[in-house]
Design a protein around this nucleic acid. Sequence first.
DNA 1: GATGAATGAGAATTCATTCAT
DNA 2: TATGAATGAATTCTCATTCAT
Lengths: 200, 200, 200, 200
Amino acid sequence: MPKSKEQFEQIRNERKDTILRSALNLFVLKGYDAVNLDEVTKDAHCSHGLLYHYYKSKEELYQGVIEQIVYPSCKTMVECINFDQKAKFVIHDLLDTVLKVLKSPNDEKVKELYLLLNIHLQKSLKVVKKNEQGHTFIYSTIEDLINRGKLEGDFNDYSSAELSISILSLIKGIAFNRIHIGYKKFVCPHSEVIMEMLLR
Amino acid sequence: MPKSKEQFEQIRNERKDTILRSALNLFVLKGYDAVNLDEVTKDAHCSHGLLYHYYKSKEELYQGVIEQIVYPSCKTMVECINFDQKAKFVIHDLLDTVLKVLKSPNDEKVKELYLLLNIHLQKSLKVVKKNEQGHTFIYSTIEDLINRGKLEGDFNDYSSAELSISILSLIKGIAFNRIHIGYKKFVCPHSEVIMEMLLR
Amino acid sequence: MPKSKEQFEQIRNERKDTILRSALNLFVLKGYDAVNLDEVTKDAHCSHGLLYHYYKSKEELYQGVIEQIVYPSCKTMVECINFDQKAKFVIHDLLDTVLKVLKSPNDEKVKELYLLLNIHLQKSLKVVKKNEQGHTFIYSTIEDLINRGKLEGDFNDYSSAELSISILSLIKGIAFNRIHIGYKKFVCPHSEVIMEMLLR
Amino acid sequence: MPKSKEQFEQIRNERKDTILRSALNLFVLKGYDAVNLDEVTKDAHCSHGLLYHYYKSKEELYQGVIEQIVYPSCKTMVECINFDQKAKFVIHDLLDTVLKVLKSPNDEKVKELYLLLNIHLQKSLKVVKKNEQGHTFIYSTIEDLINRGKLEGDFNDYSSAELSISILSLIKGIAFNRIHIGYKKFVCPHSEVIMEMLLR
DNA sequence: GATGAATGAGAATTCATTCAT
DNA sequence: TATGAATGAATTCTCATTCAT
C-alpha cells in the first residue's frame, strides 16, 4: 500500500529543508563558487541524486535557499514592526530587530539575514538578477522612511540617498563581521550609535 | 641589438603588472573562486605559460595582487595623513581620503581599496591568514584613535570597539556599493555623516 | 467487494499496455538511448516502481515493445495477404499494405511498422541480436518472392539480392520520412513506382 | 623560443582532425546518444581536457563533425558532376557517384555520406535544426532535376515529390545497409535499377 | 499492485596546472 | 622570456535502478 500524498509531501519537505539548510550554511560561509555539492550532500546526509531530484542545478539550489528560506524568514522578522509610528521609531525598531538577530547566538537567523543583504554578491546568477528589484526595494523603503523622518522634523539635512546607503552599508558590514568573526568575538553597536547619523 | 639587463627587467615588470592588474580587476568583480585563469590571461593578453612563469599558482597570483598592488597603493593613500593632530581630525582625514577615492572615477584605486577591506573574504588562502594581523591592525588603529578622541573629549561614550567596528563596516559597505553599482550611480555619504556616530 | 482474478488480470494488462504504448512512441521518436524512463513513466502516468514491476530493465521494456506490440501487429498486417498468387501480385499487395499504413493518419500503426523495420538500429540490445534472424527472414522472404517472379517471367534480370535490398531500403526510408515529417506533409509514392524497379 | 603561429595552427588542425575522425566514426556506428566521450578520447588518444579545449560540448563536437568533415567532403563528391547535361544523365551521375562510394571499401567516405543523409536523426541538436534547410535543399534539388527530366520527355508522370522522396529514401536505406552490414556482405543495386523508377 | 523517494555509478564539463618547444 | 597545446583530477549533472511502505 503506497504512502498517502500527505506523507510523501511531508517526507519531501523535510528532506528539502535539510538540504536547503546545509546549502544555506555553506553558501554563507564559503560563498557560492567555493561550495561544492559534495559537501552539501554530505552535510545533508543525502545522495547527489536526491539533491538533483529536488533542485535541477547548483544555481536552483541557491535560488531555493533564497526563496524558500531567506525571504520568508526575513519577512517574518520585519512583520512585527509597526510602520505607522513616526519614521524615526520605525527605523529604530528595524535596527533593533536586525541587531537583536545579530547579537543572538542563533546562527541560522544570522545567516538568513546575511544572505538577504548579500545576495547580489553573485551577480551572474539568475535569482540575483531576478531579485535586483527586491534589493532596490529595501533601499527605497529606507529612503522613504528617511524622507518621512525629515518631514517630521527628526532627521538632519543630508541627502536621503546618502543616509540610506550609509545605514544599509553599515548593517551589511556588521552582519559580515558577525558571520566571519563568530558569535563570541562579535561586538555589536547599539542602534543609538547608528541613529546618530540620522538625527539632527 | 640585444636588450640590456635593465630593458629585460622593465619588460618583466610591465608584463607582471599587466597580469596583476587584470587579476585584481577580476578578483574584485567576481570573487576569488569565480575567477578562472583563462580570463586573466585573455585580459592580460598573455599565455598560461607566462602567468605561471611569474606566479606559481592562482593563490600566489592573488598574493601578488595584494602585496604588489593593494598594500603599496593603500600605504600611499594613508601616508599623507598627519597623525599628530587631534584624533577627530585624523579620523576625519582618513574618512575624507577614503571617500575621495570612492567618489573618483578612477576604478583602479577603488578596487585596490575594496580589496584591502575585503581580503579576509577568502579565509582559506594563505595570504589572508598571513595578513589577518594586517586586518586586525586596521581595527586596532581605529580603536586607538577613538580612545584618544575620547580622552580629548571629542567622542561619545559608546565602547570604542563598537564604534570602530561601525566605522569600518560602514566604509566596507560603501566601497562594496561603489564597486557593484559603478561610478555613475554611486551616492557617497559625507564624512560628517559618519562622524556623527562618534562625536558627542 | 474484492476484485476477481480476471479483473486484476485486466487491470494488469491495461497498465502494461499503456506503458508499452508510451515507450513505443518515445523509442520511435527519439531512439532508444535518448529516451529516459522518467519520460516514459510520465507519459504513461505511472510510477517508476510500477514500470520496474512489469519490466526488469529498460532493455526488457524495449523487448516488450517489440514482442508484445510490434511483432503481433505486423503479423496481422501481413496475414491477410494471399501468398498463393503470382509473386508480382504478392509483392504488390505487400507494398500496398505497407503504403496504406504509412498513408493513414493512424500514427500508432505507423510507429509499429517503423520499429519493425528499424529494430536493428540498436545493435547492442539483446532483443535485437535475438531477432536478427527475424530481420534476415524478411529479406529472404522478399528475395524468394523475387526469384519466383523471375521464374514466372515478370521481373527483370538484376540480381534478386540487389532488388530485395532496394525494395526494403526504399520502404524503410519512406517510413522514416512518414515518422519524422508527419502525416500532413508526408508524400507517399505509389506502389507502381516501386514495382518499376522489379518489372521487366 | 615559442612555436610559430603556423606550427601551432598545424598541430591544432591535426589534433582536431583526429578527434573529429574518431567522433565521426563512433557517431555513425552507435548514434549520438550512445556515444560517450570517453570512447572518443580513447580512440583519438587525447585527454578529456583537450577535447573540451577544442569543442565546448558534445553537441559542438557533433557540429564539428558535420561542418568540418561531412559537408566539405560531400561537396567535393558532387562537384565533379556536370549539371548541364540532360536531367536523366545528371541523376544517373549522382546515383553512380553515391553508389561508387558505397561500394568502395573506404569506410571513411561511406560514413561521411551516411551522416549527411542522416543528420536529422538527432532532431534535438542545434546543428540539425540549423541545417534543416540543407536537407530540404537536397530534396528540392532532386525534385527540380526530376521536373526538368519530365520536360525533357525522359521521366514518367508520377508526381516529382513522390519520385524524389523515393529516390532519396532508397539511397538512405542503402547507405544504412552498407554501414551496418559492412563492406563484405554489402550488395549494392545498380543505378539502372533505381532509374527504372523514373524513366517512362 | 502501486507509489515516488532515494541511490550511486557513470557521463559531461571545468579548470588549475604542466610541458615541450 | 614566451607560447598555447595538453593533462587529469575534481565538479556538476543524469539516469537506470532499488527500496521502504
